[in-house]
Design a protein around this nucleic acid. Structure first.
Lengths: 180, 180
DNA sequence: CGGAAGTGGACCGTCAGCGTTCCATTCTTG
DNA sequence: CAAGAATGGAACGCTGACGGTCCACTTCCG
């Protein structure tokens, strides 16, 4: 069943986000599935993790696409992007804590020029329009964005901040820093 | 020898920062020490990690103390703090990636009020003086600070940015955000 | 020089997690 | 309802990491 596969991948991302050394039985239980079934879908741990990474990348990619970053002003788009990221928090945290998928993307890509990243497109557009700081590299802005969203998610998970307050706070700090 | 103990703890923090599932022999080798010696100083893995955490907390604490955060304007102090953090990058990354020491501090603390954190003192002072944004909590600012420093360290490790450029960039983004 | 302390290579028993298989049970579907 | 597919509990062997020990070797100092 495709439904099972999806549930496993989601649960795996969630469980591994919390504890990257989560055991296979733990993941299976989190997915509401027996260890045998888990093994049936993903023969070994490595396969599972790769699939989970791929699935999360895809899910996040969809969320970003839906955010329509090419529409409206860069600042408006940025707001939608942050919101979108927060909605896929688990997967984002999972990718963030993986053997640092972020740098090489872990999943082998056949030398894709990667020029087609909507987020980087938005950032460069914002810099061109004079909306975003162009004294720093687009990559830096992207990483800062990830870091702040990640921090916000932690805050929400811990209960320190309300789910909604997080978005506003992340955006505020992202845009204007911490100075008064 | 106290020298050996220190070398082990430093190497452990460094190795575990890169790969938190680093094996004991790996840590021993990183410390330039035999597995037996490692075992002599720290009977089991858990003891080693606790000691490494404690050691790192202490080292960072010293670096913060030396930054004299109560001197000069909050902004000046913040600059020194960021620089100090970057100098103890390895340990910071180690603590950051630990079973989330950051939240509960992992190391048992007997209900210390924790009121004596120079960093939080600086932040609240900055907010009181009208230097820092007081629409967000001091904790949030602290976490953002950590996150940005962490991001900067990654950048430096990856070679994306020069060691010196990192400090300037982190401070710039921390202070004024990503808007132009 | 000689003993004490520290070091580390080698070895070993244990154990948790993994990969694999078997099989009874449940769920689907024609 | 019956055949087939899917599920998951149970058991097993394997492997890698760990905790622990023994012992030869170096270093240091009386």
């Amino acid at each position: 069943m495709e439904r099972t596969r999806s549930a496993i991948l989601t649960a795996a991302a969630s469980a591994l986000a919390r504890d990257r050394s989560a055991t296979l039985p733990e993941i299976a239980k989190a997915a509401g599935v027996g260890r045998t079934t888990l093994h049936r879908y993903f023969p070994d741990r490595d396969t599972l993790i790769r699939a989970a990474v791929e699935d999360s990348v895809e899910a996040i990619g969809e969320a970003v696409t839906e955010a329509r970053l090419d529409q409206g002003t860069p600042v408006e788009a940025l707001h939608r992007l942050v919101t979108a990221y927060l909605h896929v928090g688990d997967r984002l945290v999972f990718l963030f804590n993986d053997p640092h998928v972020m740098r090489g993307y872990g999943v082998e890509q056949p030398e894709e020029p990667v020029t087609a990243d909507p987020v980087l497109d938005l950032i460069t557009r914002g810099q061109r329009d004079g909306a975003f700081d162009d004294h720093v590299s687009p990559q830096w802005i992207q990483h800062v964005l990830w870091a702040l969203v990640y921090t916000g998610i932690e805050e929400a998970d811990r209960g320190t901040m309300s789910r909604h307050g997080v978005a506003a706070t992340v955006i505020r700090t992202l845009e204007r820093g911490i100075l008064a």
